[in-house]
């Protein structure tokens, strides 16, 4: 088996700039985002599939896609 290690991108919210409007929560297909006490949004990295929908929808454009998790991909 020919395997390759690849970094998977996950959504990351820049907390100090987030106004907690909740747009990302509504559009996330995996329910991976939560608003913490009405202050900022937080992404559950285990649930995030890196689809970028939240990053595109965020009105403040403060959700970044960050290479977070190393995944093993079978390239056979």
């Amino acid at each position: 088996m020919d395997i390759k290690k690849k970094l998977k991108k996950k959504a990351y919210v820049v907390k100090d700039k987030c106004v907690a409007c909740g747009t990302c929560v509504k559009v996330c297909p995996r329910g991976a985002i939560k608003i913490i006490e009405g202050v900022f949004a937080e992404v559950d990295e285990n649930k995030c599939i890196g689809c970028t929908i939240c990053a595109k929808e965020c009105p403040a454009s403060i959700i970044e896609m960050v290479a977070k998790k190393e995944v093993v991909v079978d390239v056979k």
Binding site: V19, A20, C21, T23, I36, E37, G38, V39, E57, C58, P59, A60, S61
Partner: peptide
């Protein structure tokens, strides 16, 4: 801009965000 751009500078949103931040 984006559909919910108003939410960024909405005065009610700013007030509730301010209150929530102080509480947090």
């Amino acid at each position: 801009y984006k559909p919910r751009s108003w939410c960024i500078y909405c005065p009610m949103g700013t007030m509730t965000h301010g209150i929530s931040t102080i509480k947090y």
